[in-house]
């Protein structure tokens, strides 16, 4: 039941993101969509990810986006002409893409669970601890690489936003 509620909220707000004329409205609908997705994570017993979703996406990234919209004063930049030719091809291709995703989902539905981390098992330890253990043992190298990526992103953002090159 909860699943359908979240689904409707997520799809509706996603549609509004791409359909609303004001970018600030889009941004707010996107935040709503992220909350809906966080809700899915809770249903899937991944509370840690749900928290991260809210913190990182809704909290950090979307704040950044809204900040940029305000910085560039874009809230009323609406009069951008539409390219219907491109739109037509895009709609057709994404209907096709969705169809393909659907086909793949059906194709993969025969898979049986192989792992040991059943919902019950995760609940005995707690999903935060499991993710933490994985992140600092098995995935330590990607973790370090990710930290370097973030460092590079900081430098990159700084260079791009400088007034002069």
């Amino acid at each position: 039941m909860l699943f359908y509620v979240f689904s409707i909220i997520a799809i509706y707000s996603a549609l509004m993101v791409i359909l609303s004329r004001n970018p600030l409205t889009s941004a707010l609908y996107l935040v709503l969509c992220f909350f809906a997705i966080a809700g899915f994570y809770v249903i899937l017993d991944m509370e840690f990810l749900a928290a991260m979703q809210v913190l990182v996406y809704a909290g950090a990234i979307m704040v950044l986006v809204v900040l940029v919209i305000m910085l560039l004063n874009l809230a009323n930049a609406k009069n951008i002409p539409k390219d219907f030719h491109q739109m037509f091809i895009a709609v057709i291709s994404f209907i096709l893409l969705f169809f393909e995703i659907f086909l793949y989902a059906i194709k993969g539905s025969g898979k049986v669970p192989t792992g040991i981390y059943t919902t019950a098992f995760i609940k005995t330890i707690g999903n935060t601890q499991i993710i933490g253990e994985f992140l600092f043992t098995k995935y330590i190298f990607p973790f370090e690489v990710a930290s370097i990526l973030l460092l590079i992103a900081i430098i990159g953002a700084f260079i791009f936003a400088r007034r002069k090159f």
């Binding site: 390219d83 491109q86 091809i89 895009a90 291709s93 994404f94 096709l96 893409l97 393909e100 086909l103 793949y104 194709k107």
Partner: peptide, 20 residues
């Protein structure tokens, strides 16, 4: 840029179809 993105998308669709 957008037309390139569209082309890329069509390529992705074609590849997915091929693997399917």
């Amino acid at each position: 840029v957008m037309s390139y993105a569209l082309t890329l998308m069509i390529g992705v669709i074609a590849l997915l179809a091929y693997y399917f």
